[in-house]
Structures are given as structure tokens and as C-alpha cells.
Design a protein around this nucleic acid. Structure first.
Length: 409
DNA sequence: CCTCCACAGGAAGCGCAGGAGT
DNA sequence: ACTCCTGCGCTTCCTGTGGAGG
């Protein structure tokens, strides 16, 4: 085995700045999003003048630049010499309940509230007092807002806050990639959140090409990537979903493959290999972040998809669906064989809903179902790969546990 | 037609962890 | 050190829904 980390210190022939290629990187120029950016700014500018702005709701698929645009505007606002406008950027994947969001807001601006132990009401009152102190305008950005469990409560609390506050106010910016999200919302929350609506369309192949080109010129060394490779990566990503993140991932992966081969340039062949790997990796990252039992459920789904199980086919379509109840039974037997206690059926249904929201499985509702009222579930990725991944992660975890059991150094 | 089955998803309640107040 | 709160994950209980079968 080569010396570990040796590559880290060796300068790359391929990459100039990997940071530029990361999906979290916010470039100083966002292409094809001028309209959206001015729209966001227009909604927020009243806040900057000390009036309450309009709430904005932003939606669009993953990798259409929603988060980047928001972060871009947020940074711009932070740079402005306006003291009274304050911003909280909340990633709802982490802060996924009313309580967590509120304490995130509080700890953003009042460091002594970083700790736990305060009740909702107390935090709420603190925030209100803080806003009233000098008529602040608070802009709260809720990224991936659909993940919040008790969103209706949160929105109610925040709008309620607005009427409680004598001077100053709160402006909400909601971001979601779930298009159907609108229908699931309580009508009252809907009307508050959707004061202003903004769609982010998927990128087409030519747009993706330009975006890639922009990043590539700074992320890679000169003459490493040719136009043909860029076009191919863009075309693949556009065909898949119009996801800029996927396009970037493909390019990065292609770079890694070229680097491993020791070649000094990326060709179309690396790109097409990378495209296959990239999607698996996205799935792997998603699943790797899952709590144990949700992962086991995905594992059960994967196993049953492979073995064929007792799935039912729906109107001669190729896609076979699994029945929710049978997946649960399988999940229970898996946990038993691992000598672990299975979670209850109710919680399992909640997990299924979570997994669906994360796009790991697709579940079609009752409709003209096989049975009265059930969910028809299908894995969003190749079951063989998923099975492999989860087995590996389970193995890794037990290895970690063994290490933890070793005497401490 | 009615009843039963198999499931969805809401509501309530439980024990636990962990901070605050005393 | 203790009691009092609170949120959180989870279970228990419940009502609703629609096809299968009598």
C-alpha cells in the first residue's frame, strides 16, 4: 500500500482549486440567474430600508442554483452598511423543527443562547425583545424548508411574532426543492409564505456547458479540460435532471480518474466513466447520512427489489413496486438477524415518508392500489449498488465499534 | 350490500437527556 | 445534589380508506 496521504502533499497536475468545483462554492457571478437574483433583492430591499419586506418562497429542483443565489444575496446584504437588517441562514436539514430553528436564530445573534435548555416561549420572547431593541429587521432564510416537521407551527409562530413586534419585523425566505410541497401546506401558512413566489427552472445543456466552463477555467489547470468533455458532462447532467451539482460532480470525478491514471488531461472517455460513478456517489452520500434504522429499511427495499420478492406489477409496466407491509416484515427480520430491536410499524411509516422526501425511494400513494390503502414503494437507485453500499457501511460501522472497544491509547 | 383486512397518518402520552433554578 | 422544565424519539391508540370476499 502506498504511503497514506502522500497525494495530499503532491501538487496536482489536474486540479488548480478544488474548492471552486465543490457544490457549496458560491461564485461571484451566477450565470443565468440574474432575474431570480434581482427578484430576491426586490423582495428584501424594503427590509434594508427598515420596512418589513415581502416573504419569498423559492422552489426548483436540486442543483438549479437556489441555495447559491440565496447565499449570494445574503453575502451582499451582510456587506452593506445597514445595521438594522440582520440575517439568519438556516439549513433545515440540520435545524428541522420549530424549536431548533428558533434557537438557531437566537444563537446566531445572541451567542449566550447557543446552549440548550430554554423553552420555546423564552427563546421567542428573547428574539422579539432583541428585534424591538432598535427596530431591527430580521431576514430568516429557511433552506430546504419542507424538511421541517412542524412547519405550520413555525410559520404561525413567526407571523405571530410579526404582529407582536411593535417596531421592526421578520421577513421569511423559504427554499424548497419539492414542487408538490405547496399542496401539503396549511392554507394559512401558505398565504404567508407565498407572498412572493419564485421559480428556478432546470438548466438546459447549453447553460450547463457555460456554467461548467466558468468553473473549469478556475478549478482545473489550463488545458486540462477540452470543450468536448465539458459538453458531454453538461449533456449527461441535462438529460438526467438539469442539475448543476451533478455536472460539477462528473467533472470532478473525471479529474480524479485522470489523476489516478497519471494523465495530464481529461478526455471524453474519463467523463463518461465519471458519469456512471457520480450518480452512485450522490446516492452513497445520501444513504451514508441516514440513521441506522432508515438505512436498514432501504436495505430491505434493495434486497427485495433484487430477489424479486413478492412484488406486484402495475399495469404491465416494467417498474415493479413493493408493498409497504411486506417491506416492513423484511425489515423486522433483518433487524432480528442483526440482534437488534426493530422499531414499531408507525415509526416505520414515518421513516418511509422521510425517505421519500429525500428522494431515496419513490412511493406512490393509494390511488387504484393493489390493496385498499397502501403505499407502493420503489428504490430510486439501482438496488444492487445500494445493497453493496449498505453492506459496506454496516461492515464499516461494526469495524468502528470494534475499534471503540479497543483499549484507549 | 356489509364486514374484514391491511394499511395511512393524526393525537396523545411515555421515558429520557440535559439545562436552569434552588 | 435536587427538582422542575423542555424537547425529542418513540410507542400506543385511534380513525379513515378502499379493495376483497362473503
Amino acid at each position: 500500500m502506498p504511503e497514506p496521504f502522500a497525494d495530499l502533499f503532491k501538487e496536482s497536475d489536474i486540479f488548480a482549486d478544488r474548492e471552486v468545483l465543490s457544490p457549496h462554492y458560491v461564485p461571484e457571478h451566477l450565470l443565468f440567474r440574474d432575474r431570480q437574483i434581482t427578484e430576491i433583492e426586490r423582495s428584501l430591499t424594503p427590509s434594508l430600508r427598515g420596512e418589513r419586506g415581502r416573504n419569498v418562497f423559492i422552489y426548483g429542483k436540486t442543483g438549479t442554483g437556489k441555495t447559491s443565489c440565496i447565499k449570494y444575496v445574503v453575502e451582499k446584504v451582510r456587506m452593506l452598511p445597514v445595521l438594522r437588517a440582520k440575517i439568519s441562514y438556516v439549513n433545515c436539514r440540520i435545524y428541522n423543527s420549530r424549536y431548533r430553528v428558533l434557537s438557531k436564530i437566537a444563537s446566531d445573534h445572541m451567542p449566550m443562547y447557543a446552549k440548550r435548555g430554554f423553552g420555546v416561549i423564552e427563546i421567542y420572547e428573547r428574539i422579539i425583545n432583541w428585534i424591538e431593541e432598535d427596530s431591527k429587521i430580521l431576514i430568516v432564510v429557511l433552506d430546504e424548508v419542507d424538511i421541517i416537521r412542524d412547519l405550520d407551527d413555525l410559520i404561525y409562530t413567526l407571523t405571530r411574532a410579526n404582529s407582536d413586534i411593535k417596531s421592526g419585523g421578520i421577513t421569511l425566505v423559504g427554499v424548497s426543492n419539492k414542487l408538490s410541497f405547496k399542496e401539503e401546506l396549511d392554507p394559512r401558512s401558505l398565504s404567508t409564505l407565498y407572498e412572493n413566489e419564485l421559480a428556478f427552472p432546470s438548466y438546459n445543456s447549453t447553460e450547463l456547458s457555460s456554467i461548467l466552463k466558468d468553473r473549469v477555467t478556475r478549478g482545473f489547470k489550463p488545458n486540462v479540460v477540452d470543450q468536448a468533455s465539458i459538453n458531454l458532462a453538461a449533456a449527461i447532467a441535462a438529460k438526467e435532471s438539469g442539475d448543476a451539482r451533478l455536472a460539477l460532480k462528473i467533472m470532478t470525478k473525471a479529474g480524479e480518474i485522470a489523476e489516478a491514471k497519471g494523465s495530464k488531461a481529461i478526455t471524453v472517455s474519463e467523463v463518461s466513466t465519471a458519469a456512471k460513478v457520480a450518480e452512485e456517489e450522490i446516492a452513497y452520500e445520501l444513504i451514508g447520512m441516514l440513521p441506522e434504522h432508515q438505512r436498514l429499511i432501504v436495505y430491505a427495499v434493495a434486497l427485495m427489489s433484487i430477489s424479486g420478492g413478492r412484488y406486484k406489477k402495475l399495469n404491465q409496466e416494467d417498474d415493479a413496486f413493493l408493498l409497504s407491509g411486506e417491506i416492513y416484515n423484511r425489515y423486522v427480520s433483518i433487524t432480528q438477524s442483526l440482534h437488534k430491536e426493530a422499531k414499531g410499524a408507525r415509526l416505520y411509516r414515518r421513516y418511509i415518508a422521510d425517505l421519500e422526501m429525500q428522494g431515496i425511494i419513490t412511493a406512490s400513494g393509494s390511488g387504484k392500489g393493489v390493496r385498499g390503502h397502501t403505499k407502493l414503494i420503489r428504490l430510486a437507485y439501482l438496488p444492487e449498488k445500494i445493497k453493496e453500499m449498505i453492506e459496506k457501511s454496516l461492515f464499516n460501522e461494526s469495524a468502528v465499534e470494534q475499534k471503540a472497544g479497543e483499549p484507549a491509547a
